[in-house]
Design a protein around this nucleic acid. Sequence first.
DNA 1: GGCTATCCCCTAGTTAGTCTAGGTATAGGC
DNA 2: GCCTATACCTAGACTAACTAGGGGATAGCC
Lengths: 119, 119
Amino acid sequence: MTSERFDLLPGALDMMVLKTLTEGAQHGYSIVRHIQRRCQGALSIEEGTLYPALHRMEARGWVRASWGQSDSGRKAKFYVLTPRGRKELSQRVDSWARFTGAVSQVMGDFEPTGAGQLA
Amino acid sequence: MTSERFDLLPGALDMMVLKTLTEGAQHGYSIVRHIQRRCQGALSIEEGTLYPALHRMEARGWVRASWGQSDSGRKAKFYVLTPRGRKELSQRVDSWARFTGAVSQVMGDFEPTGAGQLA
DNA sequence: GGCTATCCCCTAGTTAGTCTAGGTATAGGC
DNA sequence: GCCTATACCTAGACTAACTAGGGGATAGCC
């Protein structure tokens, strides 16, 4: 939050959540931690972002939810990937690859600098 | 263009426009063509997206506009990069690199499947 | 002259998704 | 009891992209 604002999240979040669920059912809170662990904290997913996203995906039939018990014995809502979610995931992965490929073609050899010196 | 998932990630457009302007002053219409030529049409920038973006960037002091004549002799508004715009660009390039890097760490070895080609 | 296509700019309104900033509730440690 | 971590949720603000138009100027064709 705050410190760094990518504004790039829209679209990529769903993909990462779906990918996380390919590794088995998980509840929201653990999905967040899983993603953050994977990228060493480079991305921070707000709960206020994640839960609406999960509900959206459930409404679209990409995931299915059911209540269960978390490792710590608390009530938790577990999400599993549906076949449609799996299909959506692979489409998104393809789109992501095409999109980032296109952007880097546009950006050419423009090099990521340190943090901000001039080209 | 509708069908594609990542029409444009918020934030990536500004970066591409700023990058385009590092190659010299250009007017809006030619910026669009430049970007589309670069990515072989993989991205489509709508005018209704571009012009508001240019105005935003001008208001923020990243570009400066002035009226001039296009190659075809028409009136056109040319944009040039300001020092602040240049700085913004390199920050965005860095953010972009960090963000896409983080996403691919999360996605791991998940490979783009059928629709496109594979990595 | 009219017609069309291309060039070039613009905006209002809609939609979508993230962020802010709260709220609820339980379990465990002190 | 209090505090922290866990676990879920929502309303409202905000930003930016998209839709779907608009206008005018130029060049070429008939």
